[in-house]
Design a protein around this nucleic acid. Structure first.
Lengths: 211, 211
DNA sequence: TCTTGACTCAAACGTTCGTTTGAAACTAGT
DNA sequence: ACTAGTTTCAAACGAACGTTTGAGTCAAGA
């Protein structure tokens, strides 16, 4: 390949622009302009604008879900060894930690976070089916593991509380910095490690609420 | 006016299309086609496509925030009369109840919910500034009231937990029905009243978690 | 009846969109 | 040095975009 990084430069520029401006508001000329490649390179390397979006999503989501599954299986295995039910906090951590860790991994993952927020908000969008297809297996396994961790909880109630938990996570991911730019008399910023624990405190208490 | 409902028909069609397809993916010809009005009617009545979006948002958000503020002031006044701190649950209810109540109020409000989800996911979108401008006063007042309700809680921690709460709410609003269309061995659907209480249980426990 | 203002309409404006094309440039195997 | 295969390039394609225009329609006041 004469310029082996053409595909990567397109992926980086598309990730950034899809996140900041949205899929439909981003033109292929904007992408190829920022990537400093020819306009036809997208269709040559990816086929179409939609297939480019799929490639942008897959590049980060596949390894992310692999890590989430690894942490979940690790806790299930640890619980099995010790003949105890899996820990709610550790199960939630399997979902939360790799996600929050995306922050502080550079500009690319930050843009990816924003892009995922857009995809979740799009009820019939292009990337949504792909995203849910990638997420489904983990969510199913997390739900089953959570039923072992909270056997007394009604499954329907557990479903909704997991739903709320995912919402809290995705919302805090979506708003990196100044989402609610209110004049605050203090600085609410937290390092990622503390943010994880703060979020785990909140979700764990909500999942284990009494009624 | 010869056809006095032209503006309403445009607003209804735009609300539906902006929600399902997104602002940039919706053309003015799609809107005027579904509204059965002339293409130029949008520019005549609203000025531009962006001003139409602002009108769509304002139509529902202004009365919604009025109701939220009413409930919040009602609880503050009740607490003042009884010389007690405001109730966490009642304060959260002021934010949650009018929002969840939008479900079951017809097709229009349901589309509006989806549209708000899109606006929140758009970091520099057209409707975002307008939306935050409308929401800001209520959020600020809610935060101050919550500080009275939870005086022992660090303000920075309260900020984050309110952030998580808003996330749980907006996520559950965004996913009316089959957001996670996993093969569930049960029916997780709930009537709005029960959904409100289920969400309040979750948020209240999270806000009052110990550390 | 004439006039005025609000509204609707078909048609066109210039621009930008995603995609395609065919030739040129480059790399590597023989 | 020649060839085959891959990648880049400028240019153009038809289609769709948001907006504007100017004539036409209608209801109501003078």
């Amino acid at each position: 390949m004469s310029q082996p990084d053409t595909k990567q430069r397109i992926l980086d520029a598309a990730e950034r622009l899809f996140a900041t401006d949205g899929f439909h508001a981003t033109s292929m000329r904007m992408i190829t302009g920022q990537a400093a490649v020819n306009l036809a390179a997208i269709n040559y390397h990816f086929g179409s604008k939609e297939e480019l979006l799929a490639a942008v999503i897959d590049r980060r989501l596949v390894p992310l879900n692999a890590e989430r599954n690894r942490l979940l299986e690790q806790e299930l295995e640890s619980a099995r060894r010790q003949a105890r039910p899996p820990s709610v906090r550790q199960l939630v951590r399997a979902m939360v930690a790799p996600t929050v860790a995306l922050r502080g991994q550079g500009e690319g993952p930050e843009h990816f976070i924003t892009l995922v927020g857009r995809i979740l908000a799009d009820p019939q969008g292009i990337g949504r089916d792909l995203f849910l297809e990638r997420m489904g297996p983990f969510i199913s396994r997390l739900f089953e593991a959570m039923r072992q961790a909270l056997p007394h909880l009604d499954p329907g109630l557990l479903f909704w509380r997991l739903h709320f938990s995912i919402g809290a996570l995705s919302h805090v991911m979506r708003c990196h910095d100044r989402h609610l730019r209110l004049p605050m008399p203090f600085d609410p910023s937290l390092p990622p490690e503390e943010l994880i624990e703060t979020l785990l405190d909140f979700i764990e208490a909500g999942l284990e609420a009494k009624p």
